[in-house]
Amino acid sequence: MGVVPEDGDERLTAEDLGGPLGERATLVHFSSAFCAPCRATRRVLGEVAGMVDGVRHVEVDAEARLELVRRLRVTGTPTVLVLDARGAIVRRARGLPRRADVIAALGAAV
């Protein structure tokens, strides 16, 4: 997983995600039904969100949310966005994440 810093201009809201943002940060995971690495990504992000207070994991079905996929320029699954408490995108990564990389990326958000 290559983690890329974002400029923080793009923000997501609870309405965009279909639920509340995390108190400190949100891990947004774009997935699709036939994506094998997406299942492992779900597990890793769920574990990290469970370990860090105030962090929420939200999975978005890329096929069902094409308008959001296009708006955010998501080109494949799994894609993970790390949001700060205000919903600003601070990191973006594509591919199966390693737990240590997710935890490090959260450091930029909290």
Rank of each mutant, 00 (worst) to 15 (best):
M1N: 11
G2R: 13
V4F: 10
V4P: 11
P5T: 13
P5M: 04
E6S: 15
E6V: 08
E6R: 12
E6Q: 15
E6Y: 09
G8N: 12
D9G: 11
D9C: 04
D9S: 15
E10D: 15
E10P: 06
R11T: 14
T13W: 03
T13D: 00
T13H: 01
A14Y: 01
A14S: 06
E15C: 05
D16T: 03
L17N: 02
G18V: 02
G19E: 01
G19D: 04
P20G: 09
L21M: 04
L21V: 00
L21H: 01
E23G: 02
R24G: 05
A25Y: 07
A25S: 08
A25C: 06
A25Q: 12
T26E: 12
L27S: 06
V28C: 04
V28P: 03
V28Q: 04
H29L: 12
H29T: 05
F30A: 11
F30K: 13
F30V: 13
S31H: 08
S31F: 03
S31D: 14
A33L: 14
A33G: 10
F34V: 10
F34W: 15
F34S: 13
C35W: 05
A36S: 14
P37T: 05
P37E: 13
C38D: 12
C38S: 12
C38Y: 03
C38I: 09
C38L: 11
R39I: 09
A40E: 15
A40V: 09
A40T: 10
T41S: 04
V44Q: 02
V44P: 00
L45T: 01
L45G: 04
V48Y: 00
V48H: 01
A49L: 06
A49E: 06
G50N: 09
V52A: 02
V52S: 04
V55L: 01
V55N: 00
R56F: 02
H57C: 01
V58P: 00
E59I: 05
E59V: 08
E59N: 08
E59W: 02
V60P: 05
V60N: 03
V60E: 05
D61E: 15
D61G: 08
E63D: 15
E63R: 14
L66M: 14
L68I: 09
L68K: 10
V69C: 13
V69F: 05
V69S: 10
R70G: 13
R71P: 08
L72Y: 06
L72A: 06
L72W: 10
R73Q: 14
R73I: 07
R73G: 13
V74A: 11
T75A: 14
T75R: 13
T75W: 08
T75L: 15
G76Y: 06
T77L: 06
P78M: 02
P78G: 02
P78E: 08
P78T: 03
V80P: 13
V80T: 15
L81C: 12
A85P: 10
R86E: 15
R86Y: 03
I89M: 12
V90Y: 03
V90F: 04
R91H: 07
R91V: 09
R92K: 12
A93P: 12
R94C: 10
G95C: 07
L96Q: 11
P97I: 01
P97K: 01
P97M: 03
R98T: 07
R98G: 07
R99D: 09
R99N: 11
D101P: 11
I103P: 00
I103F: 02
A104R: 14
A105N: 06
A105D: 05
A108K: 05
A108Q: 09
A109C: 11
A109I: 09
A109T: 11
V110M: 15
V110I: 14
